[in-house]
Design a protein around this nucleic acid. Sequence first.
DNA 1: TGCACCAGCGCC
DNA 2: AAACGGCGCTGATGCA
Length: 586
Amino acid sequence: MEKIDYYYITSIQEGLEALKSLEASKYLYLDTEVAVKSLKEIDFFSDKVRLIQIGNEESIFVFDMYKIPEISSYLKSLLEKKGIIGHNLKFDIKFLKTNFNIFPKVVFDTMIASQVLSEGEDERHSLAALTYRLTDYHIDKSQQASAWGMENLTKEQLDYSANDVKVLRDLFSILKDKINSIPTPHKATGKIREVFGIENAVIAVEMAFLPEVALMELVGMPVDREILNRRLEEAQKEYQREYIEFVRAYGVDPFSPQQITKWLTRLGLELPKTQKGSLSSQDSALRKYIHMAQIKKLIKIRTDKKIIDKLKELQKYERNGRIYSTFKQIGAPTGRMASMHPNLQNIPHELRDLFRASKGRKLIIADYSQIELRIAAEYVNDETMISAFQEGKDLHKFTASLLTGKSYEDISKEERQLAKAINFGLIYGISPRSLMEYAKNNYGIEISLKEAQEFHQKFFEVYTGFKNWHEKVKDDLKKHHKITVITLLGRRIKVKRFTDAVNYPIQGTGSDLLKMAVAMFGKLKGDLDAYVVNLVHDEIIVEAKEDIADNIKNVLSASMEKAGKILLKKVPIAFDIQIAESWAEK
DNA sequence: TGCACCAGCGCC
DNA sequence: AAACGGCGCTGATGCA
């Protein structure tokens, strides 16, 4: 490890002097060390922050919060008014908030920056990996899991803690140069640009969004524990009956792929090859045979098991009527988030009534409607589709009328359903054969391969913007092994496959939009008693004190509208929003 | 027994 | 030639 100078601060006197010398800096480098009780399960509410390391370009100070806890109120005013640079700041922010009620909002996170810069490629973004990749030296993480709770820390521990801050200087400078050399359709505005000199809008949005994620994780999603427990008990009773009956009746385990495959063959059913990524999974293939009693039972038993698994998962993480999930801010190459421990982004609809606002509060539930179609229309600049949206048409009915030649008013329910499958499928490069399967399995519409081919052809005749786009992408991929696609905000993603090339920029723009809306909401609402409690790709759930629910609804609407107007210039955005007691009321 | 992999399925 | 994509959780399966 490189030799490094720093000041270990153990008295208030020293602390105040240190703070004075940091006062002139626009931004500060920060890291914390926490005395965790269990390495496996870090507890943001009860684990204690031992050290807070703060530096600027000249100095690094290591504050020992066990020895001088009173310094925290001075740190608060400093850290909340400066820009804060760190690595994986969600972690530090959560601990600063729970331990000292310190909540920095103007941040630059080197991990998030690195993730954005990697453009969807699978790379490591730990502080060690990043330092290794971008600078001349290595850092030693051997002290990371050392005993940060002991009375006197070792020199190795203090050196280590200071060094983690020191490397941030180089990382920030290198990352910033890389970021500012990227061409971008949108320029950053606001604090992130002012304080850190960041010009890229994607980075600025991610950084503005980060504290909102930290806060969301700390607040947790409200759940009714009594109903949760009761529902699990009931579901288990019924499931056990079903399971025993199924095995007795058919002599196979409904969860053994091998046994079920044999069983289906005995029943004389056609089933697709179970290769990974093949066109139809067993599930969608099975739905074809839903009319058969045995298949109905198989599907029911699998669905019920799913519900039980989810209830158990929720029960495991419930604490005092709230569920504390962990979100990966950039969970997918498209920029979408991911949620885990538990996953709050795949809660079955039939369990959403478990999530209820706590006493004296309301949920405000909002989701963008048909957002990917709207984004796609704007993205490929398809005049026909854009006009339809501008005229407020139901796009599925509109497509149906274009494909069938019937008038818009005369479109039947079934025709609309088919058009819905076509709209979703064809935009993203589905083949006629898959379209046929897709329509049958997901929308219950039977069409022949020939019909599917005709719809496919007609679709691209009508929506020429999409035709041109697909051709351009195919062409680019013929010339290059790998191409970079760019979302409307300017997020760049490397892709090799055609389907990815047409999917990612649309899904990615959707994630840009949601993150921007949430960041704006956080800023607009100020100190009001309302908090985002869950985010599901195009949906925002806020919990607010009852008496301000109406106001919060307006603030959220304004944020979603504003974000939409920035990204979509031609296509109007639309969203549903309402005040509710439970998540089921949507 | 533990691990890696995948199938299956919930959500968008 | 054919292809919609993304995520996480559980449990079967196969191997060491």
